[in-house]
Amino acid sequence: MQKSAGALRERLAFIAFATAATLCVVAVLLICAFLLINGLPTLLREGPFAFIGNTTWQPATDTYGIFSMVVGSLYVTAGALVLGVPLGLLTAIYLSRFAKARTKRLLQPAVELLAGIPSVVYGFFGLVVIVPLIRQLFKVQGMGILAASIVLGIMILPTIIAVSKAALDAVPSSYYEGALALGASHERCVFSIIVPAALSGVVASVILGVGRAIGETMAVVMVVGNQVRMPVGIFEGVRTMTANIVLEMGYAADLHRQALIATALVLLIFILVINLLFSLLRKKARG
């Protein structure tokens, strides 16, 4: 009798835990379903290619094309990579292969700290430090692609550093020792042997950085200028997909609202592709 009660309890526990685990899948399906149901009608009405390919976004005339924002997102993300990847990768190399134990004990928590800073604080920092700096240095308005790229470049640093460092640390020491035995210097070993061996991990860190940069909203809204237009220069403002959603969702209705949801759908598709690339690479890195 007691045994069957125990068995029942085990059974119930199993069901409860399995249900909890399945909720993740449910959440993903719900998110996709809701964006699809609410965004797809506009996407189909405008035609998916016209919606993405058209540069005119005029809620007043019910014309919705997000091409300039897609390009805006890509420009800002590319700028963040140009600034963040070399700095992050070299810092990861330093932490993994050059740093003294004590420096490492200081720098590593500092980098982790950077990962925890809220995006509004980054945005505010951009607004009060980076934008005025650009304004003074180049005699331009200040808010624009460059400012957003710098802010995002700093924001993706912890991701790039952590993932790249893990990949660099995972390279077997026999590679290093072999190169050293052949007479290569420490620097040569690191840059010619270890970094190439960790390449797939480094690329994975960059992809993860792309995902973070393209999805970042609040920090970007505060410094990118938000003008709906094709990029005209790195000092000029653009609007990203994320900024478009957060700026207009507050008052949008009907078709306009659906167009914003369709924007989120396009953003989500970008992110899903990036996630897929990342997991493929990670699988490859594991062999």
Partner: peptide, 12 residues
């Protein structure tokens, strides 16, 4: 879920 941007969560 870990990769979905927070604005998409907000919209959902």
């Amino acid at each position: 879920l870990a990769g979905v941007p927070s604005i998409v969560y907000g919209l959902f």
